[in-house]
């Protein structure tokens, strides 16, 4: 991962100076990295949309990358920001399958990925908040179904989603 980080950072610095070839490779590599990054927490049919949103954000905000700092934590912060934004918007009941290829994930996991992963953010939520967001915003259940499955009241589900998303927004740059 150290070499991947160094390579991506070098390509990003080149892209900022106008190197189109480096930029094309960087975006392709980032696209693949983002797809892996989202796999555990985003239903498969939504991953492409989310990756595209992040790529567009990277393009629009590429000046915000400070060449003196590492690249992947910058990309991960944008990925988290777009993901929390996505959770606020998405309320779909028909796309519930998570593509969980943990063999592939585990083989590529390393310290950097672990530190910047979405799981870390979920770990900072209370159990009830994490359950409410997982059931309603990720798996696409209705509030009533989520209340039934989790044993929480419907009001509690709504409150936990609201508070949980607010907390996630504040955790975007947190690594611990």
């Amino acid at each position: 991962m150290k070499s991947e980080e160094a390579t991506l950072a070098r390509m990003m610095r080149a892209a900022q100076t106008g190197d189109k070839r480096a930029y094309a490779v960087l975006l392709s590599e980032s696209s693949a990295w983002l797809a892996r990054y989202y796999r555990r927490r985003v239903p498969a049919p939504q991953i492409d949309d989310l990756v595209q949103e992040v790529l567009m954000a990277v393009h629009a905000k590429r000046a915000s990358y400070d060449p003196a700092r590492p690249f992947l934590p910058w990309l991960a912060a944008i990925a988290r920001y777009r993901w929390v934004d996505h959770l606020r918007k998405v309320y779909r009941a028909d796309e519930t399958e998570l593509f969980d290829d943990s063999a592939v994930q585990d083989s590529e996991e390393d310290v950097v990925i672990a530190r910047v992963s979405l799981e870390r953010m979920f770990g900072a939520l209370s159990d009830n908040q994490a359950t409410a967001i997982e059931l309603v915003k990720i798996e696409g259940h209705s509030v009533r179904d989520a209340a039934h499955k989790s044993g929480q009241s419907e009001s509690a589900i709504k409150v936990n989603i609201h508070r949980g998303l607010k907390k996630l927004s504040a955790l975007i740059e947190k690594a611990e």
Binding site: A15, Y23, A35, Q52, D66
Partner: peptide, 25 residues
């Protein structure tokens, strides 16, 4: 990578111009 992502990347590469990075200093 999906074809949509590749198309998007191609269009962004075409559109790309040099930028002055935001250095904290």
């Amino acid at each position: 990578m999906s074809r949509v992502n590749q198309t998007l990347i191609d269009s962004m590469v075409d559109d790309m111009q040099p930028v002055a990075p935001l250095r904290a200093n």
